[in-house]
Design a protein around this nucleic acid. Structure first.
Lengths: 186, 186
DNA sequence: TTTACTGTACCGTCTGGACGGTAATGTCAA
DNA sequence: TTGACATTACCGTCCAGACGGTACAGTAAA
């Protein structure tokens, strides 16, 4: 779809994500995005011919970045173990950022829940890969859901976990599933 | 705030929740809610003088119902065990409903994320109660987060878990809390 | 008389989007 | 070499409609 990246397109996407994050998902209007991206509204609509296209771009961009990061973390050791490890590490890192990276997801839901279909498909595939390489299916499921839960809490602005609790969860998630009890890495 | 319940008020709230669920959170306009509730717009604004008041009502109503259900399930045996059991049972039951009960949460987020502050406070207190009565803190945290994760997935329309997987998670959540999941102790 | 509405009319603002430019760059035939 | 046209990448304006909210007159029951 996009062989080379024209700078404006990605700037618009970044502006939209930042706007949803900073001003709230309800403030994600075309005018506001255009203004923040330093582009006229006409210019925005040139790159994204409708608001729906903008939302789709946001979703696809998010998935692409997620996949790229995951691939980078896994490099070539695509055993289930390595994938899970990379996923957990990535997720915990993203949880440590001050602001949730995907606040635009609320705008997408309000606009049309179907916008999230590709995202949900992606998640389904990811979970399947995770489970395929897992020695303990229930444990992997549990870990996945716990991460999902933490992301959800963060997205909704609920800061429920104390540092100690977060540490306990981290320790559980980072500990190996069956094999070598995983001495502290990194 | 409401000693006795005038029927219209709760009808409006129910209509709003149903509308967000059926038509999508983006369609939650005052006109639409009034129409669905069988009330004129003036009547709606009589009960909820602003849209913000409506959202607040939605949140408060949700919390109140949640608490009532939980209290009912716990009855009087308020040991930590019983509370957790009731919470798990309630949550799993709500996950089995076809439609998520709180789709309006996206409208609230889009309108103003602060609307969820009371809800998050409530969740914080609940988690504290849950943890206070827990023999295995990490396990309780994990269970809470996994439930949160499943609710989040459902809210976002992601149907990722197979029946067997759901059964495995249910079994884990419903099993007594004395045993730690298969994790290497550190 | 108060409470709890209904119904209609209206207002200002915001929003998505259509549209008509336009400037720069490239393509290509005569 | 040059003129004609095409494409890309925007800008700025305008508009119809939706929205939240106000105002107010009326009504029917307690």
């Amino acid at each position: 779809m996009s062989g080379n990246r024209p700078s404006s397109r990605s700037r618009i996407l970044a502006a939209a994500a930042a706007l949803a994050r900073d001003a709230g998902p309800g403030k994600l209007s075309l005018d506001a995005v255009a203004g923040r991206a330093g582009v006229s509204k006409g210019g925005l609509l040139y790159h994204f011919p409708s608001k729906a296209a903008l939302m789709t771009g946001l979703v696809e961009d998010y998935i692409a970045e997620f996949e790229a990061n995951l691939d980078e973390a896994v490099t070539r050791d695509d055993s289930g173990e390595a994938l899970m490890k990379a996923y957990v590490a990535m997720s915990l890192k993203s949880l440590d950022e001050k602001q949730p990276p995907a606040s635009w997801i609320f705008s997408a839901m309000a606009e049309d829940p179907d916008f999230l279909d590709p995202f949900n498909d992606f998640r389904r595939k990811l979970l399947q890969r995770l489970l395929a390489g897992s020695a303990d299916r229930t444990r992997t499921l549990l870990a996945y859901l716990a991460i999902e839960g933490m992301h959800s809490l963060k997205l909704f602005g609920a800061d429920l976990l104390s540092g100690d609790d977060r540490d306990a969860i981290d320790a559980y998630l980072l500990s190996g599933s069956t094999e070598t009890p995983a001495s502290p890495e990194e």
